[in-house]
Simulated scan of single mutants.
Amino acid sequence: MRVFALVVATVTTGLTAALFYAYACSATAGLSTADNLMVAQVMQRLNVAVLNGWFLLGFVGALVSTTAAVALHLPSDGHRVLPAAVGALVCYTGSLVVTRVVNLPLNQALAEAGRSGALGYAGVGTGDRLPSRRAQSQWIAARALLSTAALGFLCWALVMHCNLGPR
């Protein structure tokens, strides 16, 4: 059961890390030279399109399976894997905090601006104080790095579980 939890955690975290990586490297980089209206429109469409069952499977599945992997490795015979599993959980939770504190409020403000017909970016017409495009890109990159670090920790946990690591 332990190895199953680690594998599921690794796969779901990998899917989420890949999405965040692609988002950070492609979407934000591709939009860096676009005007504010174009950025707002594209981000509104991406935010709607990404919310689907496949995304939620990886996004929520990574948290649930990584938590399960940590819990399953709490007994003394699982302590060799525990530091890496806990590191993964901390990093992935960090990416969720960034999502909750920075990305979701921005996504909501962009959606409201679209519904109200407000043009532009960063809360034009909503009265919200939102991060600049540069700050938003940095937070998107931070989320990608945190989820990628979680993936690295889970890979190391699998190595340790299989007794392939240093002894």
Rank of each mutant, 00 (worst) to 15 (best):
A88C: 09
L57N: 02
T13G: 03
P166K: 13
P83W: 08
Q136I: 07
A84M: 04
A22F: 13
M160V: 14
Y92R: 01
L37C: 03
G152T: 04
G61N: 11
A17Q: 04
T66M: 01
A85S: 14
L151D: 03
N47K: 02
A68Y: 00
S116T: 13
P105F: 05
V60T: 11
F55D: 07
G165K: 00
G58M: 10
T99C: 08
V124P: 02
G120E: 12
V98P: 01
P83C: 08
V48F: 12
P83R: 03
P83L: 10
F20E: 15
T13M: 02
V64I: 15
L130S: 06
T67D: 00
N107P: 03
V3N: 02
L46S: 08
W139H: 14
L104V: 15
R134M: 10
V7K: 03
L46M: 13
N163K: 15
Y23M: 12
A34G: 06
V81Q: 04
V64N: 05
C155S: 11
T33F: 07
F55M: 11
S76Y: 07
V48G: 05
L89V: 01
T13S: 07
V64R: 09
G78N: 06
F4M: 10
Q41C: 06
D35E: 12
V159D: 04
T13C: 07
T99M: 11
G127D: 00
W54D: 00
S116W: 01
A49C: 09
R115Y: 07
F55S: 09
V11Y: 03
T28G: 07
V48S: 10
I140L: 08
L130V: 10
E112H: 06
V7M: 03
R80N: 02
F55N: 11
T12N: 01
C91L: 09
L74D: 13
L31K: 04
L15C: 10
R134C: 04
L82M: 03
A49N: 12
V124W: 05
V39Y: 14
H161G: 03
V7P: 06
L119R: 14
A144V: 10
V7H: 04
M1E: 14
V8Y: 04
L110T: 15
A34R: 15
H161K: 05
A29Y: 11
S76K: 13
V97N: 13
Y92Q: 02
C25E: 15
